[in-house]
């Protein structure tokens, strides 16, 4: 490619854009360790006080517990459903394939408030009460499409001849799945579990409409944003969450790459080794 002035302008723009993207995120740890009760510059000093406050807030602990349960169950169920769908659309062809898959992926483009409102209307009509279970139901709906997106590539990269070889060597259907298919797509499965867990952990709108008395973490944070005195500890909480999310993401990415590598080397499939 030719060297001109254009790339330089673009580089400056790219850097400015990254500053814009990171501006709010950078403030989070700054104010979390800031020794002042108001969230404003100039910073006054270093403290870990706000993290200690978190340690002794019971409402927060139960919210974290609720969120962990919801996110864990959501991750398991969505990844299971996602695996079914990804396997079905990569290995088999069946009538109305596009329509069915498209419908399952629909929550990806629906505003969350529509999902939340329609679920709450149905629950009201059925006379069911709201609980953490209803939050899980909503979260599975929006997480499954992400799981399908991740697992589709894992299943698509799977060399079918390996499964056929396993059948020929006398393995049963279940034995083949457990000993051949599952190990090959496992990194994709773990990556999907982590992504779904992270999405559910951060989801607010559906949780806000569908929780009963047990608040999840974002619902708890929302309730705290009204009280100015609580803000520094909310910043501390946000900092911990950010570190956690980034950690989970890095882990998910590492597993995804391992999946690609493993299939590329062990199965020597046509793609992957590029």
């Amino acid at each position: 490619m030719k060297r001109g002035t254009a790339p330089n302008w673009l580089t400056i723009y790219a850097v400015a854009y990254m500053v814009f993207l990171y501006a709010p995120v950078v403030l989070l740890p700054l104010f979390a360790f800031n020794d002042a009760t108001i969230i404003a510059f100039p910073l006054s000093g270093f403290t870990t006080e706000w993290f200690k406050v978190l340690w002794s807030t019971d409402a927060l602990h139960s919210a974290v517990g609720n969120s962990a349960v919801v996110a864990f169950v959501t991750a398991l169920v969505s990844t299971f459903l996602g695996a079914c769908a990804a396997r079905a659309s990569s290995r088999y062809s069946f009538p109305a394939q596009k329509g069915i898959t498209g419908f399952i992926m629909l929550p990806l483009v629906l505003p969350e408030i529509i999902v939340a409102v329609s679920l709450i209307v149905m629950l009201m009509q059925l006379g069911l009460s709201l609980s953490l279970l209803t939050v899980v139901a909503g979260h599975v709906l929006i997480c499954t499409p992400f799981s399908i997106a991740i697992l589709s590539s894992a299943f698509a990269g799977l060399d079918q001849s390996l499964e056929e070889a396993s059948f020929d060597l006398g393995e049963s259907r279940w034995g083949t799945f457990r000993r051949v298919t599952l190990p090959l797509v496992m990194p994709g499965v773990i990556s999907s579990l982590l992504i779904c867990f992270t999405i559910s952990l951060d989801e607010f709108i559906i949780a806000f409409f569908l929780t009963g008395t047990d608040a999840t973490l974002p619902v708890y944070i929302w309730s705290q944003l009204r009280f100015p005195t609580k803000l520094p500890s909310v910043m501390a909480l946000g900092t911990i969450l950010l570190a956690l999310s980034v950690g989970l993401l890095l882990l998910a990415e590492w597993f995804r790459r391992r999946a690609v590598r493993r299939q590329g080397l062990d199965a020597s499939s046509s793609e992957g080794l590029l």
């Binding site: 079914c84 396997r87 709906l141």
Partner: peptide, 23 residues
Amino acid sequence: GLTLIGLPFGYALIMLAAPLAMV
């Protein structure tokens, strides 16, 4: 294929199509 896709599709029908129709 249909058996496998049945589970996620069934879930979407019950938790998405039915609620949307109800709204």
